[in-house]
Design a protein around this nucleic acid. Structure first.
Length: 294
DNA sequence: CTGCAGGCCGGCG
DNA sequence: CGCCGGCCTGCA
């Protein structure tokens, strides 16, 4: 069956999608935008999106997704993997910007910005502050196990990401089971603010980027960097440039050739990358990680 | 044992 | 305002 530019075949296991370009699971899942996909020994990844547990594999330019049918492709995966965006075109434009980008992009040629659930991202990136990725993953998993819904699948037991109601209606001591340390009080408070409607996550896409960022920063544990990650990795805004310690170092080494402030980097990305800032950030991040620039 | 990690918060000048 | 110290936890 065809959908947009893709051909989808259903089989006993799930679906096969043909016609996919600019796609690499390692680049997609190992650039810090998602914390719930686990790499398997055979190179596939298993993860949970909403309440669907699937295994994905990309081989010979065919994307295999288990536990899914054609409707799931249309309703979930097409958007989730941002398959409506022409990354070839984006890379072309970014390469024309400067030599650094044309050098960096080949390293992460298969990067895609996932369109993930914004509520799950909000809590996940609150946990990411001053933390390490393995611990972030453990905390997100613990929250799900303690407060999410159990899903039984061919791949084993998984847990959905808990709702704002679930995370705000229990005592703080319960949240502390997820071992997120001082961030637990932010999780608890932010969950309560979302439940009460102090900030409405579903209307951020109707605002300008600055307005949306300022809304998110009202939440406890959300600063500039976390807000930009949430906007970018939910597919809400692409003209953001989340600047963590890595990106700061990369920008100083590659572009500024000296120390730079967050403000200078922000202004530079706006002027230089404009509406494609978010994509540029991902390629630069991956490039730095692969080449160990520091 | 000390240092530190994909920042944020709060207090101070 | 901008700057800076402290921070849960776990691993090097």
């Amino acid at each position: 069956m065809d959908y947009k530019n893709y051909t989808v075949y259903e089989n006993a296991n799930g679906i096969e999608i043909r016609g996919i370009k600019d796609f690499d699971l390692g680049h997609i899942f190992d650039c810090g935008q998602s914390f719930r996909w686990l790499k398997q020994q055979d190179g596939s990844y298993i993860g949970i999106v909403g309440d669907k547990v699937s295994r994905v594999r990309f081989e010979d330019n065919i994307l295999h997704i288990s536990n899914s049918n054609f409707d799931d492709f249309v309703n979930i995966w097409y958007d989730y993997f941002d398959l409506g965006t022409d990354y070839g075109e984006i890379k072309k434009i970014l390469c024309q910007k400067d030599e650094i980008m044309s050098q960096a992009i080949p390293f992460g040629q298969g990067i895609r910005l996932l369109r993930q659930d914004i509520w799950e991202l909000l809590i996940s990136f609150i946990i990411s502050a001053n933390n390490r990725i393995p611990r972030i993953m453990k905390s997100v998993e613990a929250l799900s196990q303690n407060f999410g819904r159990k899903i039984s699948s061919e791949e084993g037991q998984f847990y959905t990401f808990p709702s704002a109601e679930a995370l705000s209606s229990c005592p703080l001591e319960q949240i502390e089971l997820c071992k997120a340390g001082f961030r637990c009080k932010y999780i608890h408070k932010t969950s309560e603010m979302i439940r009460k409607g102090v900030v409405n996550l579903s209307t951020l896409n109707e605002m300008t980027t600055d307005e949306a960022r300022n809304e998110l920063i009202k939440l406890s544990g959300v600063g500039r960097k976390v807000a930009d990650c949430i906007l970018l990795f939910s597919g809400t805004k692409f003209d953001v440039f989340p600047t963590d310690v890595w990106i700061k170092r990369i920008m100083e080494v590659l572009y500024f050739k000296k120390e730079a402030t967050l403000k200078e980097i922000d202004q530079f990305s706006k002027d230089h990358f404009g509406s494609l800032s978010g994509y540029a950030q991902q390629y630069l991040f991956f490039f730095a990680r692969e080449t160990r620039i520091s």
